[in-house]
C-alpha cells in the first residue's frame, strides 16, 4: 500500500515537474507546479513528517505559487515567443546538469555504503522541531528570517524607484 502510494506520487512529482519546464503556457506551468508541490507534501507524509507536509502546502502552494499566478495574470504573459533566449536556455540546461552532477558526487561520496538511518518520530515531531529551531539553531534560523526580510525590503525599494521614474 505504502509502496503503491509512493510510486504514484513520485511519478506525479516527476511528470508534473517536467510539465512545469516544458509547457508553453505559463498558467499551465504554474498549475503543474502546484501538483508537484502537493505531491512532495504527500511524500513527506509517507516519510512520517506530517508537519513538514502541512507547512509545504501552506507556504508553497497556499502562498508563494499564488503570487506567481498573480504576477503572470497581471502581466498577462502569453504562451508564445518561447523560442527566444536560445543562449539562455543552453546556459540554463548546462548549469542544471552541472549542479545535479555536483550534488550527486557530493552525496555519493558521503553516503556510499552507509545505510541511512530513517527519520525518527523524535526528529520530526512538533516539540523537538520547535526546540531545535528556536533553541539549538536559533541564530541561523533568525539569520534566514533577516535575509528574507532584507530581500523583501530590497524588492520593495526597487519597485518603488521604477514607479517614481515613470511618473
Amino acid at each position: 500500500m505504502e509502496v503503491a502510494v509512493f510510486l504514484l506520487f513520485a511519478a506525479l512529482v516527476l511528470v508534473s515537474a517536467l510539465v512545469v519546464v516544458l509547457h508553453r503556457n505559463p498558467i499551465y506551468a504554474v498549475m503543474s507546479l502546484v501538483v508537484t508541490l502537493v505531491s512532495i507534501a504527500v511524500l513527506f507524509v509517507l516519510l512520517g513528517a506530517p508537519f513538514l507536509a502541512a507547512i509545504q502546502v501552506l507556504v508553497y502552494t497556499g502562498a508563494i505559487v499564488v503570487l506567481f499566478l498573480f504576477v503572470i495574470m497581471l502581466l498577462n504573459v502569453s504562451g508564445d515567443g518561447s523560442t527566444a533566449f536560445g543562449l539562455q536556455k543552453i546556459v540554463a540546461a548546462g548549469a542544471a546538469v552541472g549542479f545535479s552532477t555536483l550534488l550527486l558526487v557530493l552525496f555519493w561520496g558521503r553516503f556510499e555504503g552507509l545505510p541511512l538511518p530513517p527519520l525518527e518520530e523524535a526528529d520530526v515531531a512538533l516539540r523537538p522541531l520547535a526546540r531545535a529551531l528556536l533553541g539549538t539553531y536559533l541564530l541561523p534560523f533568525e539569520m534566514v528570517g533577516l535575509l528574507l526580510l532584507a530581500a523583501v525590503t530590497a524588492a520593495t525599494v526597487l519597485a518603488r524607484r521604477a514607479d517614481r521614474e515613470k511618473t
Binding site: 502546484v34 506530517p50 508537519f51 507547512i55 501552506l58 502552494t61
Partner: peptide
C-alpha cells in the same frame, strides 16, 4: 498532530 495547520493548508488551495 498538525491539526488546524492541515485545515489552513487545505483551505488555502
Amino acid at each position: 498532530e498538525t491539526g488546524v495547520l492541515l485545515l489552513l493548508a487545505l483551505a488555502s488551495l
